[in-house]
Design a protein around this nucleic acid. Structure first.
Length: 823
RNA sequence: GCCGAGGUGGUGGAGUUGGUAGACACGAGGGACUUAAACUCCCUUGCCACUUAUACUGGCGCGCGGGUUCGAAUCCCGCCCUCGGCACCA
């Protein structure tokens, strides 16, 4: 290929990025370029990042990656004719601010506001197109008024309740936690302490009522990554099966059999099983140590067991174990037979022993199981150890335990029936119910800490729990002397008598405020809605605005695959049910981003001393450089290590773009025009699908060609528009230098001239026997015989055809020619 | 164990309705400019063999082993490894 080289020497022009950034950031602000017109008639596009927690450490270069992507995407959409909403806000309640406040003796609000100012400055340095008129902050009383309002609605609908069940308690953070706040090994995700089970009064949200809908509606989320949906499915953990009652008989104190319940009804315990088809093989029953029946049976006032002491000791020992010890499948099974009581297998009437064992979990299903050792690995191991009969009921050539399906045996009238069919049939015979159970537990919603939204209820001696009347919202967080957690299970708010003691809204009698606060995740469970209508004082959101702007069109973030996204989906569905929103899901499309590691391949952390502050990169290399670089690093969803060399590569690219403005030509080769239109198409398609790395690469390819072959002012201007979303400062500057009107960011995105995309000649690869041997350049859509004769004229091809006869010709027009020879 | 995503040069990565693998960038080597260095620019750069040669040419190459096909990074079968979610969940 011919290359007419311009001498790049003379092309090199450096520019003062600091000057340009300062100039245009000021101009953008002054002209209100990025203001959103919520009432615009244009089609809307709501592009949102997961808003940050404003930590004292500030941003490192990894944080802005997602923000850059949404900035580019929303700028592109604006150029494509949409009215965009691309806001930013602060998730500012939570433990770190509170801990910082305790340590440094400042009010958390003061610390957080300082951090926000720092974050905002860091973001502004990168040239983002946020409309700060739409900023929100979860700690503003005008915001959390509506967080509290949602809680009241949940309470009203019976979806918030108080529970005294043992919950996760972090001894270091001194607060209760939700299951979602724990690591896999049962430690606190925030401080790493081993979490304890502790019974205490808690507010709990009935998220399980929404489990089925949250699971089913995942299928409507066509624009979500599969792995996120899968993580949510796993978290919800639905199992389908049956609940079947097992009658108990007392053998040690037979008189107890005739004297149960007010109507003499028999005692029966329900078990949950996914394999009701194996009921005939159930040779014992197991209860979790925390099962209420067990608790009752070992109570001192009861005396129906033969070995109460022994069972009691086992239960006590089980409670001493940590979560990890309890849930380690590898360890040998332990348990104790409950003597003096047997269960009746409802299928065949056999008397089977009852055990208490900690391999059965109280929090799942009914906390009791029917054990089928022949067809369950765990039951098999347990049965072998305790010498319990093993009865095979599913026919299989495999060895036991076998947990697959097959024709039944030893199952009375069901012999020969297939497992699947037998599930419903056997359940029906024994009067059981086909049910589902979930791994997901209700959301433990109260924290015994200061820095959170007060839960808006009042406890009255006479009336019990009384919601704070809506017109008294927000219940504002009072000033306190000390933020330290009390450790007693009471929040620090409990010490502020003048705040706690109120009169009951119902009876006017003496009452106390709820002193627990909401978890960190409350404010972020609905914040996206508030961006649309941030200053509304009379409603959470104006219905008309909601109708136009919800849901979020593109939501971008990493992490939070379950927690935040589960909670937000839950609240959104609730808001749908009470008529606040009109869609069943909050986020139409989700883009998951990969993180940026430090140059040494480790996570960026103060601990390793490898943190890079974007401010330093902006100062040294420019905001446009870091923007282009972070998009060029690799696929958006990939986690990649920072590379200063790569950054410099992006900077060189921008400097060459800038330098080219001094070397524009009056004409350009057709090839450059054609390439420009290919580039327009490629960049538009790639931004739409979040493939920013290949969009940048396409622009680099165009720049290389334009430098080598020449480019006109018009084409160069078009190219600048493609680059504008990525590098908003220098493109604005160059746009002005070309003599155009302000602003490049309000230009329509260039149109592709489709006629330019089809070149008149094509280069076709030529294969001999499937191996590439040469290529021919020929007019588009050339006839097969012309391509073959052109290929036969190619010496490289000819060499491989020598002395051979062409048996077969495979020709894919404009793509490939394959000559197959005999011999 | 179950489920999901992935494995391509020295590096980040292109390319998957099967059709010229390695675009673009980084790094490296060589050269121009410079008193010198930096910057900038030009050339080379998957591996191996042959060769005075970086020229030709041939062979091998997308985790491994098979298969389908004129043709496989792409489709099928069987493995291995990495990352993520769940996990004594009945």
């Amino acid at each position: 290929m011919m290359k007419t080289m311009h001498n790049r020497d003379t092309m090199h022009t450096t520019f003062d990025h600091k000057e340009i950034e300062k100039k245009w950031q000021a101009k953008w602000k002054e002209s209100g370029l990025y203001r959103t017109d919520i009432d615009s008639a244009k089609e809307k596009m709501f592009v949102l990042d997961m808003f940050p927690y404003p930590s004292g450490d500030g941003l490192h270069v990894g944080h802005p990656k997602g923000y850059i992507a949404t900035d580019i995407y929303s700028r592109f959409k604006k150029m494509s004719g949409y009215e965009i909403l691309h806001p930013m806000g602060w998730d500012a309640f939570g433990l770190p601010a509170e801990n910082f406040a305790i340590k440094n003796k400042v009010h958390p609000r003061v610390a957080v506001e300082k951090n926000i100012a720092n974050f905002k400055a860091q973001l502004d340095h990168l040239g983002f197109n946020y409309d700060w008129e739409h900023e929100i902050n979860t700690i503003d009383p005008s915001y959390y008024k509506w967080t509290q309002w949602i809680f009241l609605k949940l309470l009203e609908k019976g979806l918030a309740y108080q529970s005294y069940e043992p919950i996760n308690w972090c001894p270091s953070c001194q607060t209760g936690l939700a299951n979602e706040d724990l690591e896999n090994d049962g430690t606190c995700e925030r401080c790493g302490s081993q979490v304890e089970k502790r019974p205490m009064r808690q507010w709990v949200l009935k998220i399980t009522d929404y489990a089925d809908r949250m699971l089913a509606d995942l299928d409507t989320l066509k624009k979500w990554p599969e792995h996120i949906k899968e993580a949510q499915r796993n978290w919800i953990g639905k199992s389908e099966g049956a609940t079947i009652d097992f009658e108990l008989q007392f053998t040690h104190k037979p008189e107890a059999n005739s004297n149960r319940g007010p109507n003499g009804e028999k005692a029966a315990l329900p078990v949950f099983t996914t394999r009701p088809d194996t009921l005939y093989g159930a040779t014992y029953m197991v209860l979790a140590p925390e099962h209420p029946w067990v608790t009752l049976a070992i109570d001192d006032s009861h005396d129906v067991l033969k070995n109460k002491k022994e069972v009691k000791a086992y239960v006590a020992a089980a409670q001493q174990k940590t979560e990890i010890e309890r849930t380690n499948a590898e360890k040998e099974k332990t348990g104790v037979e409950v003597k003096g009581v047997v269960a009746i297998n409802p299928a065949n009437g056999e008397k089977i022993p009852v055990f208490v064992a900690d391999y059965v979990l109280a929090g799942y299903g009914t906390g009791a199981i029917m054990a089928v050792p022949a067809h369950d690995e765990r039951d098999f191991a347990f049965a072998r150890k305790f010498l319990i009969p093993i009865v095979q009921v599913v026919d299989t050539p495999h060895s036991l335990p076998f947990d697959g399906a097959g024709p039944l045996i030893n199952s009375g009238e069901f012999d020969g029936m297939n497992s699947e069919e037998a599930k419903a049939a056997i359940t029906k015979k024994v009067g059981g119910k086909l049910t589902s159970t979930y791994r997901l537990n209700d959301w433990v919603f109260s924290r015994q800490r200061y820095w959170g939204e007060p839960i808006p209820v009042i406890h009255c001696e006479k009336c019990g729990v009384v919601p704070v009347p809506e017109d008294q919202l927000p219940v504002t967080l009072p000033e306190v002397e000390h933020y330290e957690p009390t450790g007693t299970g009471e929040s620090p708010l409990a010490a502020i008598d003048e705040w706690v003691n109120v009169s009951c809204p119902t009876c006017d009698g003496p009452a106390k405020r709820e002193t627990n606060t909401m978890p960190q995740w409350a404010g972020s469970s609905w914040y996206y809605l508030r961006f649309i209508d941030p200053k509304n004082e009379t409603a959470l959101i104006d219905p008309k605005k909601e109708k136009k702007w919800a849901p979020v069109d593109v939501y971008v973030g990493g992490d939070h695959a379950v927690r935040h996204l589960i909670y937000a989906r839950f609240w959104h569905k609730f808001l749908y049910d009470i008529g606040v929103v009109h869609t069943i899901e909050p986020f139409e499309r989700l883009e998951f981003l990969g993180f940026i590691l430090a140059e040494d391949g480790r996570k960026m952390s103060k601990r390793w001393g490898n943190v890079i502050n974007p401010d330093d990169i902006v100062a040294q290399h420019g905001a446009d450089t870091i923007r282009v670089y972070e998009m060029f690093m690799g696929p958006f969803e990939n986690t990649t290590a920072w590379s200063t060399n790569g950054l410099v590569g992006a900077q060189r690219f921008l400097e060459r773009v800038y330098g080219l403005s001094d070397h524009l030509s009056d004409t350009e080769p057709e090839a450059v025009t054609v390439l420009l239109h290919k580039t327009i198409k490629k960049v538009a398609d790639d931004i739409e699908s979040f493939k920013f790395n290949t969009a940048v690469s396409a622009m680099m390819i165009f720049l290389n060609a334009a430098e080598e072959q020449g480019v006109t002012k018009a084409s160069y201007g078009t190219f600048l528009k493609l680059l504008a979303a990525f590098a908003p400062h220098i493109t604005e500057e160059l746009w002005e230098r070309l003599g155009n009107d302000y602003s490049i960011h309000e230009q329509p995105f260039p149109e592709v001239d489709e006629s330019k995309l089809t070149e008149s000649t094509v280069t076709i690869g030529v294969q001999v026997n499937g191996r590439h041997r040469g290529s021919v350049t020929i007019s588009r859509d050339a006839a097969e015989k012309d391509v073959v004769s052109a290929a036969q004229a190619d010496p490289d091809v000819l060499r491989h055809l020598e002395g051979k006869e062409i048996m077969k010709v495979i020709y894919v027009p404009n793509r490939i020619l394959n000559l197959v020879t005999g011999g």
